[in-house]
Structures are given as structure tokens and as C-alpha cells.
């Protein structure tokens, strides 16, 4: 194809792919593509070039983010060697004394509300812009933040899915109805057990543990958070730090 003509076609292909084309013009181009295999082949190659461009651009963005992340993290990965000289021992003793003081203060101040605030993470449903996605009614209520309505609607449902149980459990948590949250998450776990499924199982571990924490059931909360922290493939593992575990253990001792 001669260059000027090809350039015009390329610009028409761009308009078609970007959705900027008038309906009449689009029909015309589509008809041309149907009738002319060479043009169709040219269009396929054109789409391939767009695909190569976008994939390469995404890869470049990810590569740069990876680089930023590694460089930012480097200092934390460095292991320093410490020689046990007298001077070093003195510093260690000073640090130990500081740590003891810190632990005493921390023990006296630890409480379930603060730990809950530290550990609480919003559970957001993804919202897409695609027009062909229809949300279930309960999902829509949850997305709109109408948690009381989620709870009421859940009671009316005949066939409850794991997703319904989970979102309702989180809604109870949001509305500070911790007993009900515990009950709902446990029902979801029972359903999973009965059906041999794992739907929202790990999400429920985390939010059930939060519900126990607010329900003054520290023992159960501690068991669950410990299981999450010790499970390398648990999706909420990174949310539970060693400091959180220490706070939870202190809280258990205080209660």
C-alpha cells in the first residue's frame, strides 16, 4: 500500500480502536475490512503493533516500579555485624533498660480499641466502569456504605452465597454488632466446611479475628491472628506484625 493511503488507513484504524469513529464511517470501514482480506490482514498487524506497544509500556512501568521498590528497600535488607566490645555491651545494656521502660509503658497503655484500629483494613469491593457488570443487590448496598441495609437484606435472602455471608459479616463489624459479626463469619466457615469450599475463607479469618478482638474474646482473636501470621500464604499475613502480636499477648495478660 502506498504511504499516503496507508497513513489514512492507520488514522481510521486508530479512530476505530479508540472508539472515536462516527457510526456511519465505522460501518463503512468494517464493510471494507470484510470485503478485502489484504486490508483485514493490515488491520490485524496494526492491532498487533498496538498490543506490542501497550504491553511493552506496561512492562516498562512495572520494571521502573520494581527498581524504585528495591532501591527504597535496600537499607532494610542490610545486615550489620555487631562486635561485642565493652563499649557495645554498654550500649546494649542501655538499650535493654530503654526497652524495659518502653514495655512497661506499652503494657499499661495497650487496649483492644487501639489494636483494632491498628489492624482494621477496609474491605472494598472492586468497582469496574464496564457497563455490562451488574452488581447483586447486596453488593450494591455494601458498595454504597448502607451497612444496616446489607444486614436487613441478608436476613431476607433464601439462598445465601459465601460472598453474602462475608459482606454481611463485615457490615456487622462496621455497625459495631460484634456478636452478630462473629456469628455470621462462623456460619460462612461452616458453609465452606459443609461444601468443601474455601470461598472468602482467609478474608473471614481476618475479619473474624477483628470481631473477636472487639468482642472481648482475646483468646480466640489471638489464636486466629497467630494462625494468620504463621501461614506464609495467608493473604492477610502482612497485616499482622510482630508488634501487633506482642500487643495482643499483653492484652491477653491484662484480661
Amino acid at each position: 500500500m502506498e504511504d499516503n493511503k496507508a497513513l489514512t488507513y492507520y488514522e481510521r484504524f486508530d479512530s476505530l480502536l479508540k472508539g472515536n469513529m462516527e457510526p456511519g464511517e465505522q460501518q463503512l470501514l468494517e464493510a471494507e475490512l470484510n470485503e478485502n482480506p489484504d486490508l483485514q490482514n493490515e488491520f490485524d498487524l496494526f492491532k498487533m503493533s498496538v498490543e506490542v506497544t501497550t504491553r511493552s509500556s506496561i512492562r516498562e512501568e512495572v520494571k521502573m516500579a520494581n527498581h524504585r521498590f528495591l532501591n527504597q528497600d535496600q537499607p532494610y535488607h542490610k545486615i550489620k555485624t555487631v562486635s561485642l566490645t565493652t563499649w557495645g555491651m554498654r550500649i546494649a545494656a542501655g538499650l535493654l533498660a530503654l526497652m524495659v521502660c518502653y514495655s512497661v509503658v506499652r503494657f499499661s497503655m495497650v487496649n483492644s480499641s487501639d489494636i483494632y484500629s491498628q489492624l482494621y483494613t477496609e474491605y472494598n469491593l472492586p468497582i469496574t466502569r464496564s457497563s455490562d457488570v451488574e452488581y447483586a443487590h447486596l453488593d450494591s448496598l455494601y458498595i454504597s456504605g448502607r451497612y444496616a441495609d446489607v444486614m436487613a437484606y441478608f436476613q431476607q435472602l433464601d439462598n445465601k452465597t459465601s460472598r453474602d455471608y462475608f459482606l454481611t459479616g463485615v457490615s456487622f463489624l462496621k455497625e459495631a454488632e460484634y456478636d452478630q459479626a462473629v456469628k455470621t463469619f462462623n456460619e460462612l466457615k461452616k458453609e465452606n466446611k459443609r461444601n468443601g469450599t474455601q470461598d472468602f475463607e482467609q478474608e473471614s479469618d481476618y475479619y473474624l479475628a477483628l470481631a473477636y478482638l472487639n468482642n472481648r474474646n482475646i483468646d480466640e482473636a489471638l489464636v486466629l491472628f497467630k494462625a494468620i501470621k504463621n501461614n506464609p500464604s495467608h493473604i492477610y499475613r502482612c497485616n499482622v506484625s510482630s508488634e501487633d502480636m506482642l500487643d495482643l499477648k499483653m492484652l491477653k495478660l491484662k484480661n
Binding site: R59, V62, N124, P126, I235
Partner: peptide, 28 residues
């Protein structure tokens, strides 16, 4: 390192192509 780069590339591409819909959270 390698797999995570592939995962993030795939995730962005899937979102752009609207293949990521309502299946659980981004984390899951």
C-alpha cells in the same frame, strides 16, 4: 522478583482490558 513483575504486568493489562471484574478484592 521475576514472577511479581509478570503478575503486575498481567494485572494492569487485565484491568485495562476489563477482564478483571468482581472476583474478590485486588489483594485476593
Amino acid at each position: 522478583q521475576d514472577i511479581m513483575q509478570e503478575v503486575f504486568v498481567a494485572f494492569i493489562d487485565l484491568v485495562r482490558k476489563e477482564k478483571y471484574r468482581k472476583e474478590a478484592s485486588v489483594r485476593s
